[in-house]
Design a protein around this nucleic acid. Sequence first.
DNA 1: ATAGTGACTATAG
DNA 2: GCTATAGCCACTA
Length: 104
Amino acid sequence: MQELSQRIISVISAIPIGKVATYGQIATLAGQPRAARQVARLLHSSSDKYDLPWHRVINAQGHISLSGTAGKKQALKLRVEGIEIMAHNRIDLAVYQWKPSRDD
DNA sequence: ATAGTGACTATAG
DNA sequence: GCTATAGCCACTA
């Protein structure tokens, strides 16, 4: 396991219920601001091996990146956690984005 | 080693 | 809103 991958996984695991994080944000927290794609890669390649809250990870626009049923399932999971999903799977980042610096 | 790929992001039109 | 480009980096063949 690469150190970066482990760090990314660690960050994702730390996302609290009721909050979301963007790929770029996770990459930054892992120490690699340019590694947004690796975050996505790690998510879909390791979410089944580890117990990652992959559904709490969305893109920088507050959209769900997945399409079709997968996206709907993600939206549903987020809704269950208390996050309100708007039309077209949009999420209000100003309200729900995770801020690890604070106690939250 | 090289090339292709992707649940990304930023910028441009 | 949309598509197109470019930059980015780990993984896979």
